[in-house]
Amino acid sequence: MIRRLVPGAVLSALFVLAALVSYVWTPGDVTGVDIASKLQPPSPEHWLGTDHLGRDLLAMLMVGARTSIAVALVAVGIGMAAGVPLGLAAAAMRGTLLDEVIMRGNDLVFAFPSLVIAILITAIAGPGAVNAIVAIGIFNIPVFARLTRGAALALWERDFIMAARVAGKGAPRISAEHILPNVTNLLIVQGTIQFSLGILAEAALSYVGLGAQPPVPSWGRMLAEAQTLTAIAPHVALMPGLAIVLMVLGLNLLGDGLRDVLDPRLRDLRT
């Protein structure tokens, strides 16, 4: 069973490790300009080649991984921190006005694609990594709220919850002590999926200039800068794209593996 976790965990861990190592060592300078070395193909000196300013692509990818991981991770945190309590409250107060207001509010947020939220935020506060985090995080809230509510609704009908109610526990305490621990596995799996979606969203926002701003390297902006160079130096566009694909693939495989390990009943329902 644990074997199912290995490919995703290894791929994801590689990128996290690269991001962590970049704090103490990178194979080159990511802020310095070395025009004499620009657009070099992969070589023993520059394993993945150099970009249009002569910067080492591997170093850029390592530091860019920090941006991607940080943005996606905090955005998942925002989604969970706001969405899970909302979902728990909606389930505990099922059928009431509060439940209706929370769920209709969720529907409304769902009507704003994350990019549209990002555009609105950028119109107000200007582009930047923090605004990207907020935009992706807001979009994550209804995802976690719906998931939590759906899972919690089924649990509220179970005998052990009835026993807790008979014991005199109120809805907030039951939600915290009995419902939440039973939906944690689902939240972990969904968290992995939202994390991978966050990596994609951050890359897209950075690509159009709404994410992390120079000189902070980001995978999306590396692609934007490489766009006009694809004909003469395809590796400059290939490397950041491959990094995104492998990181997202790793997280998705990890999510699948976690689902199998944490809830074997769901294995056959995989989509």
Binding site: S196, L200, A203, A204, Y207, L223, A237, P240, G241, I244, V245, L246, V248, L249, N252
Partner: peptide
């Protein structure tokens, strides 16, 4: 296919 960013 799911992992590929569409703009890339």
């Amino acid at each position: 296919g799911i992992a590929v960013p569409n703009f890339w």
